[in-house]
Amino acid sequence: MLFSSELIKGTLKTILLKLLADNKRMYGYEITQKVKDLTGDRIQLTEGALYPTLHALEADGLLTTETEYIGKRVRKYYSLSKEGKSKSKEKINEFSEFLDTMKTLLDISPKNA
């Protein structure tokens, strides 16, 4: 089952920050492939959501970038800034608490157990 873009939209920043925390530096296409691999194709990041969010995170100072020429084209690598590293932890903790709350709210745990 492919998760809806509505569900992914609210967690996209957290996903990107976590991926970049685990990998030193990544470029856009690499990020989409990594997410696909890690989720068994259940989450597919769209380019229309990915690049605006990467630009916004960069503008917020959470990401740093470096460019490399691949033949004639330019590849932009993203990595976490110092601020981005602490933000990443903060976002993951927040999401973890949110998940716990949702589990309680939607009464998911007893059914799974």
């Binding site: 296409y29 990467l54 630009h55 460019t67 691949i70 084209r73 330019v74 590849r75 932009k76």
Partner: peptide, 12 residues
């Protein structure tokens, strides 16, 4: 910046 991102993405 976005042009470069998309170009690289499509090329990949």
């Amino acid at each position: 910046d976005l042009q470069s991102n998309l170009l690289d993405h499509i090329c990949c």
